[in-house]
Design a protein around this nucleic acid. Sequence first.
DNA 1: TTAGGTGCAAACGTTTTGCAACTTG
DNA 2: CAAGTTGCAAAACGTTTGCACCTAA
Lengths: 152, 152
Amino acid sequence: MGSSGEHDVEQLRARLNDYMTRHGLRSTEQRRVVTEQFFASDGHLSIEDLLDKVRVEEPRIGYATVYRTLKLLKDCGLAFERHFGDGVSRYEVAWEDEHHDHLICLECEKIIEFEDEGIEVLQREVASKHGFKLVRHKLELYGVCPDCQRKK
Amino acid sequence: MGSSGEHDVEQLRARLNDYMTRHGLRSTEQRRVVTEQFFASDGHLSIEDLLDKVRVEEPRIGYATVYRTLKLLKDCGLAFERHFGDGVSRYEVAWEDEHHDHLICLECEKIIEFEDEGIEVLQREVASKHGFKLVRHKLELYGVCPDCQRKK
DNA sequence: TTAGGTGCAAACGTTTTGCAACTTG
DNA sequence: CAAGTTGCAAAACGTTTGCACCTAA
């Protein structure tokens, strides 16, 4: 529950340490708490979500610190920032081996993750057709989930 | 240049008028200027972009009015709102017959539009596999365009 | 005449920043 | 001890809203 499942957290720590060393950054207690809570989370966290988790462990952590730490994780490629309709940024762990897209219910805001290799192949074709070197992509399907269809 | 190309602006006007009549909304000079400037624009305009264009014609138009008018256009399905990385909302004319996705250069911010029916088909399959009724989607491919690859 | 629209400025919610105090290496 | 980091509160940012005045129907 809330754990990292089968993913390799150790690898994330290593990548982070490596990045911090290379950039002369310091490993503080706050950073440890924020990053560990983040790595142990599933799904798409807002700053507030993460701050709540972090404060259970270390109530004095300020909220600029969470922003700054997530910016750091974003910069070293360990977190993805997402913007779904509302005005809030949400963050997601960038597991080395995983890529998925999102299927979002317009009524109950439920978010389902999926992967589809066929789509990925076609995306690479589109990119190369335009001479682009593809780095990443974002695909979001918006619709009405089975539960909400039933409710009508 | 900056014109609407081969698209049918008249149809947009008709749809807008229809919507306004049905909702008891009024056709003001400001709305006319904002919507016409918007319909005559290509690409992805921020509120500021549009306000600049609008003020050439009618300098007294306030900037809440542009927001409110774009909200109206969004509500009646004549404009799409987009969020690319920065904090700004951008708007795009929702031409009746057209759907496209975006290929974005990470270095020069160039945006190319594309359509790919194969991808659309697979998207519909994914949605129905999860029991979703698909309403719309957003696909963005990020990479490096040919020009920027050459510059290195 | 009246419901709706406008422009302004103030309010809003999220994110960023300046700064003095504090840690890490 | 130097340089990076923190927490706070203030500022900044894009967007929304309250309100008195205006205008289309």
